[in-house]
Design a protein around this nucleic acid. Structure first.
Lengths: 211, 211
DNA sequence: GGGCATATGGGACCATGATCCCATCGCCGT
DNA sequence: ACGGCGATGGGATCATGGTCCCATATGCCC
């Protein structure tokens, strides 16, 4: 049985890598194992659905250090820490940074496999939403400065007449920019436009002019 | 110096309660201490800005058990665990449930005080946003069923004509309901209406009819 | 210099939305 | 039985939005 997703294993212990790889593959996932965090950073593509199983303490870059690196690179892979003798403080800090889970070795397969599935599902879900946001941002990027400016007023609920007054241009020009913005954003109603902008968090805080 | 917020201390050790209470008060917060989780549940009001400092292991209800109780009651108070001899698993689980932090005793005042401030600030912020959402939901609750139905179509970008067709009523009636919905929601444009509904997560997934 | 995108504007026309007036009908609670 | 409210609908009027046609001017790139 094949599933969609890659399990990345990062551990300096070859035996651990072998057994985790075997476990993940037996459950149907692809698996790529690395002996150091640096190897993982160098070789992994980061553009696939998956999750990361990483050891806390390794020669070179440690688990938490890798975590910070991934956060800095905007990589959204869920991280599941595995540790032999971790401390409370390290575990709590990892969770605060957004780790998916933090487990102590030895880990039971019946515990780990559902976790892997949940982590990969979460990542797939997030990637899907992220792609959608990216599409919207790409449409936003096609707007000319003036079109964007007019759109910002439109999604605040301003009338064409008011926008014309705000920007000191004619009503006619507002209509042109507005129509082009609607076309470029691929929407046919103000409601859809506002919703798209809400989804990507584009809410200009233009001061509400007097009515 | 007085600050806004209450620090709730829950610990079975009277000395710990005394010292934490003194610390919190010296920093300007109100403080209420409880010897058991049950006392806290019985006596605290939960409608004030604040945060909770709780011990993990106590006679009767434990810290994690109280945590679950608070979650079930929809209480948004940030929880900061304090533990003398906590395990990694307990700490990680507490963080997964949304604890604000999980510290090991003894806790340095220079660590705890900034945490208290951050937790209380976060709670104040969330309460503020929650109040705003509540206001909007109250407006939504004043809509008649038909008004709500029409509004659901409006925020999907449907034209009055299409809504009339969908609901099998006259164009005129749609206008009436629409106008009343706008008044009750206290908005003057579709853009504002859509934004309010986006904020409270009210996005009906009415199947898009053929155009 | 010629093409292209951007910003600007006018005129005309139609569709749509908003807001008044008016009305009927049914249901619920006092 | 009466009043209030929700839902329904018509007519009239005006403001607004959308979409065609047309045009000019600027700046940029090849």
């Amino acid at each position: 049985m094949d599933r969609k997703g890659v399990v990345y294993v990062i551990d300096d212990d070859a035996d651990v890598r072998t057994s985790l790889t075997r476990l993940a593959r037996s459950a149907g996932w692809d698996c790529a194992a690395f002996a150091t965090a640096q190897h993982f950073l160098d070789e992994a593509s980061f553009d696939e659905i998956g999750c990361v199983l990483l050891d806390v303490s390794m020669p070179g870059m440690t688990g938490p250090e890798l975590h910070a690196q991934l956060l800095a690179r905007g990589c959204g892979l869920p991280l599941i820490y595995l540790t032999g003798h971790g401390s409370v403080a390290i575990g709590v800090k990892a969770m605060r940074l957004g780790a998916f889970d933090f487990l102590e070795k030895p880990v039971d397969a019946e515990v780990l496999l559902p976790l892997l599935e949940a982590a990969i599902d979460q990542h797939a879900d997030r990637c899907h939403k992220e792609r959608h946001l990216h599409e919207i941002r790409e449409r936003l990027a096609t707007l000319s400065p003036r079109e964007r400016e007019v759109m910002d007023h439109v999604i605040l609920g301003r009338l064409n007449k008011q926008i014309a007054d705000d920007l000191d241009i004619s009503l006619k020009t507002v209509k042109v920019h507005r129509g082009r913005a609607m076309t470029k954003m691929q929407v046919r109603s103000v409601a859809e436009l506002v919703h798209l902008c809400d989804v990507v968090g584009e809410r200009p805080q233009v001061p509400r002019p007097v009515d």
